[in-house]
Design a protein around this nucleic acid. Sequence first.
DNA 1: ACACCAATGGACCATATGGTCCCTTTATTC
DNA 2: GAATAAAGGGACCATATGGTCCATTGGTGT
Lengths: 238, 238
Amino acid sequence: MTTLDSRNGRRLTARGEKTRARIVAAAADLMNVQGVGATTLDDVLLASGVSKSQLYHHFAGKDALVRAVIDHVGGRVIERERDALGHVSTIPGLRRWRDALVQNNALRHGAYGCSLGSLASEVSDQDDAARRAVSQLFTEWQGLLAGVLRRLQDGGTLPPEASIDQLATGLMGALQGGYMLAQTARDVTPMATSIDMALAHIESLLLIEPTPDQATHGAVILARDSVRAHQSPSASGS
Amino acid sequence: MTTLDSRNGRRLTARGEKTRARIVAAAADLMNVQGVGATTLDDVLLASGVSKSQLYHHFAGKDALVRAVIDHVGGRVIERERDALGHVSTIPGLRRWRDALVQNNALRHGAYGCSLGSLASEVSDQDDAARRAVSQLFTEWQGLLAGVLRRLQDGGTLPPEASIDQLATGLMGALQGGYMLAQTARDVTPMATSIDMALAHIESLLLIEPTPDQATHGAVILARDSVRAHQSPSASGS
DNA sequence: ACACCAATGGACCATATGGTCCCTTTATTC
DNA sequence: GAATAAAGGGACCATATGGTCCATTGGTGT
Protein backbone atom coordinates (compact mmCIF):
# COMPACT_ATOMS: atom_id res chain seq x y z
CA MET A 1 0.00 0.00 0.00
CA THR A 2 1.15 3.54 -0.67
CA THR A 3 0.12 6.63 1.18
CA LEU A 4 0.16 10.08 -0.31
CA ASP A 5 2.97 12.32 0.77
CA SER A 6 1.24 15.45 1.94
CA ARG A 7 4.04 17.76 0.95
CA ASN A 8 4.70 16.97 -2.68
CA GLY A 9 1.98 14.67 -3.86
CA ARG A 10 4.42 11.85 -4.53
CA ARG A 11 3.37 8.41 -3.38
CA LEU A 12 5.19 7.16 -0.33
CA THR A 13 5.50 3.60 0.85
CA ALA A 14 5.95 2.73 4.50
CA ARG A 15 9.59 2.03 3.81
CA GLY A 16 10.10 5.37 2.16
CA GLU A 17 8.47 7.12 5.03
CA LYS A 18 10.74 5.37 7.48
CA THR A 19 13.83 6.39 5.53
CA ARG A 20 12.64 9.93 5.32
CA ALA A 21 12.08 9.99 9.05
CA ARG A 22 15.51 8.53 9.67
CA ILE A 23 17.12 11.27 7.62
CA VAL A 24 15.23 14.03 9.38
CA ALA A 25 15.96 12.61 12.82
CA ALA A 26 19.67 12.32 12.13
CA ALA A 27 19.79 15.80 10.64
CA ALA A 28 17.90 17.22 13.59
CA ASP A 29 20.35 15.72 16.06
CA LEU A 30 23.39 16.90 14.15
CA MET A 31 22.03 20.37 13.62
CA ASN A 32 21.18 20.63 17.26
CA VAL A 33 24.71 19.93 18.45
CA GLN A 34 26.73 21.34 15.53
CA GLY A 35 24.44 24.01 14.23
CA VAL A 36 22.76 24.10 10.84
CA GLY A 37 25.63 25.63 8.95
CA ALA A 38 28.24 23.28 10.30
CA THR A 39 26.21 20.20 9.43
CA THR A 40 27.00 18.88 5.97
CA LEU A 41 24.86 16.57 3.91
CA ASP A 42 27.60 13.96 4.14
CA ASP A 43 27.33 14.17 7.92
CA VAL A 44 23.64 13.45 7.62
CA LEU A 45 24.18 10.56 5.23
CA LEU A 46 26.77 9.01 7.49
CA ALA A 47 24.66 9.41 10.61
CA SER A 48 21.53 8.05 9.01
CA GLY A 49 23.19 5.34 6.95
CA VAL A 50 21.46 6.41 3.78
CA SER A 51 22.73 7.13 0.31
CA LYS A 52 22.82 10.51 -1.31
CA SER A 53 20.21 9.66 -3.88
CA GLN A 54 17.74 8.90 -1.14
CA LEU A 55 18.27 12.25 0.48
CA TYR A 56 17.62 13.97 -2.83
CA HIS A 57 14.75 11.61 -3.46
CA HIS A 58 13.00 12.98 -0.40
CA PHE A 59 14.27 16.55 -0.26
CA ALA A 60 14.89 19.12 -2.93
CA GLY A 61 18.10 20.26 -1.26
CA LYS A 62 19.60 21.33 2.02
CA ASP A 63 17.10 24.11 2.52
CA ALA A 64 14.22 21.70 2.23
CA LEU A 65 15.91 19.39 4.71
CA VAL A 66 16.33 22.27 7.14
CA ARG A 67 12.68 23.08 6.71
CA ALA A 68 11.80 19.47 7.55
CA VAL A 69 14.11 19.53 10.57
CA ILE A 70 12.34 22.63 11.84
CA ASP A 71 8.98 20.91 11.52
CA HIS A 72 10.31 17.83 13.25
CA VAL A 73 11.99 19.62 16.13
CA GLY A 74 9.09 22.00 16.44
CA GLY A 75 6.64 19.13 16.58
CA ARG A 76 8.59 17.45 19.34
CA VAL A 77 8.86 20.63 21.37
CA ILE A 78 5.19 21.45 21.00
CA GLU A 79 4.20 17.92 21.93
CA ARG A 80 6.44 17.97 24.98
CA GLU A 81 5.15 21.35 26.06
CA ARG A 82 1.55 20.38 25.47
CA ASP A 83 2.08 17.43 27.77
CA ALA A 84 3.82 19.61 30.33
CA LEU A 85 1.55 22.63 30.19
CA GLY A 86 -1.73 21.48 28.72
CA HIS A 87 -3.45 20.88 32.03
CA VAL A 88 -1.47 23.13 34.34
CA SER A 89 -3.67 25.60 36.14
CA THR A 90 -1.77 26.39 39.32
CA ILE A 91 1.39 28.26 40.25
CA PRO A 92 3.04 25.15 41.69
CA GLY A 93 2.28 23.43 38.41
CA LEU A 94 4.04 26.20 36.55
CA ARG A 95 6.98 25.87 38.89
CA ARG A 96 7.19 22.15 38.21
CA TRP A 97 7.32 22.94 34.50
CA ARG A 98 10.20 25.31 35.19
CA ASP A 99 11.99 22.71 37.28
CA ALA A 100 11.74 20.10 34.56
CA LEU A 101 13.19 22.40 31.91
CA VAL A 102 15.98 23.58 34.16
CA GLN A 103 16.88 20.09 35.27
CA ASN A 104 16.89 18.85 31.73
CA ASN A 105 19.15 21.64 30.61
CA ALA A 106 21.41 21.08 33.60
CA LEU A 107 22.18 17.58 32.35
CA ARG A 108 24.08 19.11 29.43
CA HIS A 109 25.41 22.05 31.43
CA GLY A 110 23.41 24.32 29.21
CA ALA A 111 25.05 23.12 26.02
CA TYR A 112 23.11 23.28 22.72
CA GLY A 113 20.58 25.68 24.24
CA CYS A 114 16.93 25.40 23.29
CA SER A 115 16.51 23.08 20.32
CA LEU A 116 14.12 25.52 18.73
CA GLY A 117 15.89 28.69 19.81
CA SER A 118 19.21 27.62 18.31
CA LEU A 119 17.55 26.92 14.98
CA ALA A 120 15.76 30.23 15.22
CA SER A 121 18.79 32.43 15.60
CA GLU A 122 20.78 30.62 12.94
CA VAL A 123 18.04 30.49 10.37
CA SER A 124 16.17 33.74 10.88
CA ASP A 125 18.44 35.92 8.79
CA GLN A 126 19.09 33.34 6.08
CA ASP A 127 15.90 31.66 4.95
CA ASP A 128 12.70 33.59 5.30
CA ALA A 129 10.41 30.61 4.91
CA ALA A 130 12.28 28.81 7.67
CA ARG A 131 12.13 31.92 9.81
CA ARG A 132 8.39 32.11 9.44
CA ALA A 133 8.04 28.45 10.35
CA VAL A 134 10.03 28.90 13.53
CA SER A 135 8.15 32.06 14.36
CA GLN A 136 4.90 30.19 14.00
CA LEU A 137 6.16 27.47 16.34
CA PHE A 138 7.18 30.03 18.93
CA THR A 139 3.72 31.51 18.70
CA GLU A 140 2.19 28.09 19.29
CA TRP A 141 4.48 27.42 22.23
CA GLN A 142 3.67 30.80 23.68
CA GLY A 143 0.01 29.99 23.25
CA LEU A 144 0.44 27.04 25.59
CA LEU A 145 1.94 29.34 28.20
CA ALA A 146 -0.90 31.76 27.66
CA GLY A 147 -3.29 28.86 28.21
CA VAL A 148 -1.87 28.24 31.66
CA LEU A 149 -2.11 31.91 32.52
CA ARG A 150 -5.66 32.10 31.25
CA ARG A 151 -6.63 29.16 33.43
CA LEU A 152 -5.03 30.94 36.36
CA GLN A 153 -7.04 33.99 35.49
CA ASP A 154 -10.28 32.08 35.03
CA GLY A 155 -9.71 30.41 38.38
CA GLY A 156 -9.38 33.78 40.02
CA THR A 157 -5.71 33.43 40.80
CA LEU A 158 -4.65 36.10 38.35
CA PRO A 159 -6.60 39.35 38.17
CA PRO A 160 -8.83 39.92 35.13
CA GLU A 161 -6.83 43.00 34.13
CA ALA A 162 -3.62 41.01 33.69
CA SER A 163 -2.55 40.96 30.07
CA ILE A 164 -2.17 37.26 29.42
CA ASP A 165 -0.46 37.64 26.07
CA GLN A 166 2.13 40.06 27.31
CA LEU A 167 2.90 37.92 30.32
CA ALA A 168 3.29 34.91 28.06
CA THR A 169 5.61 36.87 25.77
CA GLY A 170 7.70 37.97 28.72
CA LEU A 171 7.90 34.45 30.06
CA MET A 172 8.93 33.16 26.66
CA GLY A 173 11.56 35.86 26.37
CA ALA A 174 12.97 35.02 29.76
CA LEU A 175 13.02 31.34 28.85
CA GLN A 176 14.83 31.85 25.56
CA GLY A 177 17.23 34.42 26.94
CA GLY A 178 17.95 32.08 29.82
CA TYR A 179 18.70 29.22 27.46
CA MET A 180 21.11 31.43 25.56
CA LEU A 181 22.96 32.71 28.59
CA ALA A 182 23.20 29.19 29.97
CA GLN A 183 24.55 27.95 26.66
CA THR A 184 27.19 30.65 26.61
CA ALA A 185 28.15 30.25 30.24
CA ARG A 186 27.93 26.45 30.17
CA ASP A 187 25.97 26.76 33.38
CA VAL A 188 22.21 26.51 33.91
CA THR A 189 22.12 29.08 36.66
CA PRO A 190 21.34 32.12 34.49
CA MET A 191 18.52 30.19 32.84
CA ALA A 192 17.01 29.33 36.20
CA THR A 193 17.40 32.90 37.37
CA SER A 194 15.83 34.38 34.25
CA ILE A 195 12.76 32.18 34.40
CA ASP A 196 12.48 32.76 38.12
CA MET A 197 12.37 36.47 37.59
CA ALA A 198 9.51 36.09 35.13
CA LEU A 199 7.68 33.76 37.47
CA ALA A 200 8.27 36.10 40.38
CA HIS A 201 6.69 38.86 38.38
CA ILE A 202 3.67 36.73 37.60
CA GLU A 203 3.39 35.69 41.24
CA SER A 204 3.53 39.32 42.29
CA LEU A 205 0.28 39.80 40.43
CA LEU A 206 -1.57 37.05 42.27
CA LEU A 207 -4.86 37.94 43.88
CA ILE A 208 -4.86 35.01 46.27
CA GLU A 209 -1.99 34.58 48.69
CA PRO A 210 0.04 31.50 47.84
CA THR A 211 0.29 28.63 50.29
CA PRO A 212 2.76 29.23 53.14
CA ASP A 213 5.80 27.53 51.71
CA GLN A 214 5.41 29.42 48.48
CA ALA A 215 6.29 32.88 47.39
CA THR A 216 5.50 35.63 49.81
CA HIS A 217 3.43 38.22 48.04
CA GLY A 218 5.51 41.25 47.25
CA ALA A 219 8.72 39.54 48.22
CA VAL A 220 11.73 41.64 47.53
CA ILE A 221 14.44 39.36 46.32
CA LEU A 222 14.78 36.63 43.83
CA ALA A 223 17.19 34.55 45.86
CA ARG A 224 14.38 32.90 47.73
CA ASP A 225 12.96 31.55 44.51
CA SER A 226 16.16 29.85 43.54
CA VAL A 227 16.91 27.91 46.71
CA ARG A 228 13.54 26.93 47.93
CA ALA A 229 11.02 24.11 47.94
CA HIS A 230 10.83 21.39 45.30
CA GLN A 231 14.11 22.63 44.03
CA SER A 232 16.16 20.17 42.07
CA PRO A 233 19.96 20.16 42.31
CA SER A 234 19.80 21.30 38.72
CA ALA A 235 19.67 24.92 39.69
CA SER A 236 23.14 24.69 41.14
CA GLY A 237 24.38 24.06 37.67
CA SER A 238 26.03 20.72 38.14
CA MET B 1 57.60 53.81 14.43
CA THR B 2 56.39 50.36 15.27
CA THR B 3 54.18 49.38 18.14
CA LEU B 4 54.07 45.95 19.65
CA ASP B 5 51.10 43.80 18.80
CA SER B 6 49.76 42.74 22.14
CA ARG B 7 48.50 39.39 20.93
CA ASN B 8 51.46 37.79 19.23
CA GLY B 9 54.49 39.91 19.91
CA ARG B 10 54.96 40.77 16.26
CA ARG B 11 55.78 44.33 15.52
CA LEU B 12 53.01 46.30 13.92
CA THR B 13 53.24 49.50 11.95
CA ALA B 14 50.44 52.03 11.85
CA ARG B 15 49.60 50.86 8.36
CA GLY B 16 49.42 47.25 9.46
CA GLU B 17 47.18 48.14 12.32
CA LYS B 18 44.84 49.98 10.01
CA THR B 19 44.63 47.03 7.66
CA ARG B 20 44.01 44.68 10.53
CA ALA B 21 41.24 46.92 11.79
CA ARG B 22 39.70 47.11 8.34
CA ILE B 23 39.61 43.33 8.10
CA VAL B 24 38.02 42.92 11.51
CA ALA B 25 35.44 45.62 10.87
CA ALA B 26 34.41 44.10 7.56
CA ALA B 27 34.26 40.61 9.05
CA ALA B 28 32.22 41.86 11.99
CA ASP B 29 29.66 43.44 9.70
CA LEU B 30 29.37 40.42 7.48
CA MET B 31 29.13 38.02 10.37
CA ASN B 32 26.49 40.13 11.98
CA VAL B 33 24.18 40.02 8.99
CA GLN B 34 25.07 36.63 7.50
CA GLY B 35 26.19 34.72 10.52
CA VAL B 36 29.68 33.42 11.24
CA GLY B 37 29.33 30.16 9.36
CA ALA B 38 27.89 31.73 6.24
CA THR B 39 30.64 34.31 6.01
CA THR B 40 33.56 33.13 3.89
CA LEU B 41 37.06 34.50 3.94
CA ASP B 42 36.58 35.61 0.34
CA ASP B 43 33.58 37.62 1.47
CA VAL B 44 35.79 39.33 4.01
CA LEU B 45 38.55 40.00 1.48
CA LEU B 46 36.10 41.46 -0.97
CA ALA B 47 34.40 43.64 1.62
CA SER B 48 37.65 44.92 3.07
CA GLY B 49 39.54 45.21 -0.20
CA VAL B 50 42.49 43.31 1.12
CA SER B 51 44.49 40.40 -0.24
CA LYS B 52 44.46 36.94 1.19
CA SER B 53 48.04 37.07 2.32
CA GLN B 54 47.26 40.03 4.50
CA LEU B 55 44.46 38.23 6.21
CA TYR B 56 46.77 35.34 6.99
CA HIS B 57 49.50 37.77 7.90
CA HIS B 58 47.34 39.10 10.71
CA PHE B 59 45.31 36.04 11.66
CA ALA B 60 46.22 32.40 12.00
CA GLY B 61 42.99 31.33 10.34
CA LYS B 62 39.26 31.80 10.40
CA ASP B 63 38.98 30.88 14.07
CA ALA B 64 41.43 33.59 15.02
CA LEU B 65 39.51 36.06 12.91
CA VAL B 66 36.29 35.09 14.65
CA ARG B 67 38.00 35.59 17.97
CA ALA B 68 39.08 39.07 16.88
CA VAL B 69 35.56 39.84 15.68
CA ILE B 70 34.20 38.86 19.07
CA ASP B 71 36.64 41.21 20.79
CA HIS B 72 35.78 43.98 18.39
CA VAL B 73 32.02 43.61 18.61
CA GLY B 74 32.23 43.06 22.34
CA GLY B 75 34.29 46.17 22.78
CA ARG B 76 31.80 48.24 20.84
CA VAL B 77 28.86 46.89 22.80
CA ILE B 78 30.55 47.41 26.14
CA GLU B 79 31.56 50.92 25.19
CA ARG B 80 28.05 51.74 24.05
CA GLU B 81 26.52 50.29 27.18
CA ARG B 82 29.02 52.00 29.43
CA ASP B 83 28.00 55.29 27.87
CA ALA B 84 24.34 54.43 28.21
CA LEU B 85 24.39 52.91 31.68
CA GLY B 86 27.51 54.17 33.40
CA HIS B 87 25.86 57.06 35.15
CA VAL B 88 22.25 55.94 35.27
CA SER B 89 20.89 55.86 38.80
CA THR B 90 17.16 56.32 38.36
CA ILE B 91 14.29 54.28 37.05
CA PRO B 92 13.49 56.79 34.30
CA GLY B 93 17.12 56.57 33.28
CA LEU B 94 16.80 52.82 32.99
CA ARG B 95 13.67 53.28 30.89
CA ARG B 96 15.48 55.62 28.57
CA TRP B 97 18.12 52.95 28.10
CA ARG B 98 15.37 50.49 27.21
CA ASP B 99 13.80 52.92 24.79
CA ALA B 100 17.07 53.47 22.97
CA LEU B 101 17.69 49.75 22.51
CA VAL B 102 14.16 49.09 21.38
CA GLN B 103 14.11 51.98 18.97
CA ASN B 104 17.43 50.96 17.52
CA ASN B 105 16.26 47.43 17.00
CA ALA B 106 13.02 48.66 15.51
CA LEU B 107 14.93 50.32 12.69
CA ARG B 108 15.88 46.89 11.37
CA HIS B 109 12.57 45.29 12.32
CA GLY B 110 14.45 43.09 14.74
CA ALA B 111 16.71 41.62 12.07
CA TYR B 112 20.21 40.44 13.03
CA GLY B 113 19.29 40.38 16.72
CA CYS B 114 21.84 41.41 19.31
CA SER B 115 25.27 41.68 17.73
CA LEU B 116 26.78 39.84 20.67
CA GLY B 117 23.93 37.41 21.21
CA SER B 118 23.99 36.18 17.63
CA LEU B 119 27.69 35.47 17.86
CA ALA B 120 27.12 33.77 21.19
CA SER B 121 24.61 31.23 20.03
CA GLU B 122 26.49 30.38 16.87
CA VAL B 123 29.89 30.09 18.46
CA SER B 124 29.15 28.60 21.86
CA ASP B 125 29.00 24.98 20.79
CA GLN B 126 31.82 25.20 18.27
CA ASP B 127 34.80 26.99 19.69
CA ASP B 128 35.30 26.90 23.41
CA ALA B 129 37.78 29.76 23.54
CA ALA B 130 35.34 31.95 21.63
CA ARG B 131 32.53 30.85 23.91
CA ARG B 132 34.49 31.88 26.97
CA ALA B 133 35.28 35.26 25.42
CA VAL B 134 31.61 35.93 24.73
CA SER B 135 30.66 34.72 28.16
CA GLN B 136 33.14 37.12 29.69
CA LEU B 137 31.66 39.97 27.68
CA PHE B 138 28.16 39.11 28.81
CA THR B 139 29.40 39.15 32.38
CA GLU B 140 30.89 42.58 31.85
CA TRP B 141 27.70 43.87 30.26
CA GLN B 142 25.65 42.44 33.07
CA GLY B 143 28.01 44.15 35.50
CA LEU B 144 27.00 47.49 34.01
CA LEU B 145 23.35 46.65 34.63
CA ALA B 146 24.21 45.58 38.15
CA GLY B 147 25.93 48.92 38.60
CA VAL B 148 22.73 50.77 37.84
CA LEU B 149 20.78 48.59 40.24
CA ARG B 150 23.40 49.05 42.94
CA ARG B 151 23.16 52.79 42.56
CA LEU B 152 19.40 52.51 42.89
CA GLN B 153 19.92 50.46 45.99
CA ASP B 154 22.48 52.82 47.47
CA GLY B 155 20.13 55.71 46.81
CA GLY B 156 17.43 53.96 48.75
CA THR B 157 15.22 53.31 45.75
CA LEU B 158 15.73 49.55 45.85
CA PRO B 159 15.60 47.73 49.18
CA PRO B 160 18.88 46.45 50.62
CA GLU B 161 17.66 42.85 50.51
CA ALA B 162 17.24 42.91 46.72
CA SER B 163 19.69 40.59 45.04
CA ILE B 164 21.36 42.87 42.54
CA ASP B 165 23.14 40.13 40.67
CA GLN B 166 20.06 38.03 40.17
CA LEU B 167 18.05 41.01 39.03
CA ALA B 168 20.80 41.88 36.57
CA THR B 169 20.86 38.31 35.28
CA GLY B 170 17.11 38.35 34.83
CA LEU B 171 17.22 41.65 33.03
CA MET B 172 19.97 40.38 30.75
CA GLY B 173 18.01 37.22 30.04
CA ALA B 174 14.91 39.20 29.17
CA LEU B 175 16.97 41.45 26.91
CA GLN B 176 18.61 38.59 25.03
CA GLY B 177 15.44 36.55 24.79
CA GLY B 178 13.66 39.61 23.56
CA TYR B 179 16.25 40.18 20.85
CA MET B 180 15.86 36.60 19.73
CA LEU B 181 12.09 36.62 19.57
CA ALA B 182 12.17 39.93 17.74
CA GLN B 183 14.66 38.56 15.26
CA THR B 184 12.49 35.53 14.59
CA ALA B 185 9.26 37.47 14.37
CA ARG B 186 10.82 40.37 12.44
CA ASP B 187 9.03 42.60 14.88
CA VAL B 188 10.41 44.46 17.89
CA THR B 189 7.29 44.08 19.97
CA PRO B 190 8.30 40.90 21.82
CA MET B 191 11.62 42.48 22.68
CA ALA B 192 9.94 45.52 24.14
CA THR B 193 7.49 43.36 26.05
CA SER B 194 10.22 41.10 27.46
CA ILE B 195 12.31 43.96 28.76
CA ASP B 196 9.21 45.67 30.10
CA MET B 197 8.34 42.63 32.12
CA ALA B 198 11.78 42.61 33.69
CA LEU B 199 11.60 46.32 34.39
CA ALA B 200 8.12 45.94 35.82
CA HIS B 201 9.46 43.34 38.21
CA ILE B 202 12.27 45.64 39.30
CA GLU B 203 9.83 48.51 39.72
CA SER B 204 7.60 46.32 41.82
CA LEU B 205 10.43 46.11 44.32
CA LEU B 206 10.79 49.86 44.69
CA LEU B 207 10.67 51.29 48.20
CA ILE B 208 9.84 54.79 47.08
CA GLU B 209 6.70 55.41 45.08
CA PRO B 210 7.58 56.46 41.57
CA THR B 211 6.50 59.87 40.32
CA PRO B 212 2.81 60.08 39.36
CA ASP B 213 3.09 59.37 35.67
CA GLN B 214 5.18 56.31 36.32
CA ALA B 215 4.48 52.80 37.41
CA THR B 216 1.92 52.33 40.12
CA HIS B 217 3.36 50.16 42.81
CA GLY B 218 1.93 46.68 42.54
CA ALA B 219 0.33 47.37 39.22
CA VAL B 220 -1.28 44.39 37.72
CA ILE B 221 -0.72 44.46 34.03
CA LEU B 222 2.12 44.99 31.68
CA ALA B 223 0.08 46.82 29.11
CA ARG B 224 0.54 50.09 30.89
CA ASP B 225 4.28 49.80 30.58
CA SER B 226 4.17 49.36 26.85
CA VAL B 227 1.99 52.25 25.86
CA ARG B 228 2.96 54.96 28.25
CA ALA B 229 5.17 58.00 28.66
CA HIS B 230 8.35 58.63 26.67
CA GLN B 231 7.34 55.78 24.48
CA SER B 232 8.85 55.74 21.03
CA PRO B 233 6.83 54.53 18.06
CA SER B 234 9.38 51.76 17.95
CA ALA B 235 7.43 49.62 20.36
CA SER B 236 4.69 49.28 17.84
CA GLY B 237 7.07 47.34 15.70
CA SER B 238 6.84 49.25 12.52
C1' DA C 1 72.69 54.16 2.63
C1' DC C 2 71.83 49.70 3.93
C1' DA C 3 69.86 45.78 6.24
C1' DC C 4 65.80 44.07 7.79
C1' DC C 5 61.27 43.00 8.30
C1' DA C 6 56.52 44.15 7.97
C1' DA C 7 52.98 44.77 4.30
C1' DT C 8 50.98 43.42 0.16
C1' DG C 9 49.55 41.03 -4.27
C1' DG C 10 47.84 37.20 -6.03
C1' DA C 11 48.61 32.67 -8.10
C1' DC C 12 48.01 28.11 -6.61
C1' DC C 13 46.39 23.92 -4.06
C1' DA C 14 43.79 20.19 -1.65
C1' DT C 15 39.70 19.21 -0.21
C1' DA C 16 34.98 19.70 1.31
C1' DT C 17 30.48 20.33 -0.21
C1' DG C 18 26.08 20.66 -2.50
C1' DG C 19 24.15 18.68 -6.24
C1' DT C 20 23.40 15.48 -10.64
C1' DC C 21 22.97 11.09 -12.98
C1' DC C 22 22.19 6.49 -13.93
C1' DC C 23 21.68 1.99 -12.88
C1' DT C 24 19.85 -1.79 -9.83
C1' DT C 25 16.63 -3.62 -6.47
C1' DT C 26 12.24 -3.89 -4.24
C1' DA C 27 7.46 -3.26 -3.85
C1' DT C 28 2.71 -2.26 -5.64
C1' DT C 29 -1.01 -2.73 -8.85
C1' DC C 30 -3.84 -4.88 -12.16
C1' DG D 1 3.32 -12.38 -13.42
C1' DA D 2 4.09 -8.43 -16.22
C1' DA D 3 4.12 -3.40 -15.98
C1' DT D 4 5.15 0.38 -13.38
C1' DA D 5 6.86 3.24 -9.91
C1' DA D 6 9.26 3.87 -5.65
C1' DA D 7 13.58 2.94 -3.04
C1' DG D 8 18.27 2.59 -2.92
C1' DG D 9 23.46 2.60 -4.18
C1' DG D 10 27.09 5.21 -5.34
C1' DA D 11 30.10 7.23 -8.94
C1' DC D 12 30.76 11.66 -10.69
C1' DC D 13 30.92 16.80 -11.17
C1' DA D 14 31.52 21.88 -10.61
C1' DT D 15 32.60 24.90 -7.55
C1' DA D 16 33.39 27.08 -3.14
C1' DT D 17 36.44 27.42 0.53
C1' DG D 18 40.16 27.46 3.81
C1' DG D 19 44.76 27.62 3.48
C1' DT D 20 49.84 27.90 1.40
C1' DC D 21 53.60 30.09 -1.02
C1' DC D 22 56.55 33.26 -3.04
C1' DA D 23 57.79 37.36 -5.06
C1' DT D 24 57.58 42.41 -4.62
C1' DT D 25 57.02 46.75 -2.37
C1' DG D 26 57.46 49.90 1.38
C1' DG D 27 58.77 51.63 5.86
C1' DT D 28 61.97 51.65 10.01
C1' DG D 29 66.02 51.90 12.53
C1' DT D 30 70.97 52.52 12.73
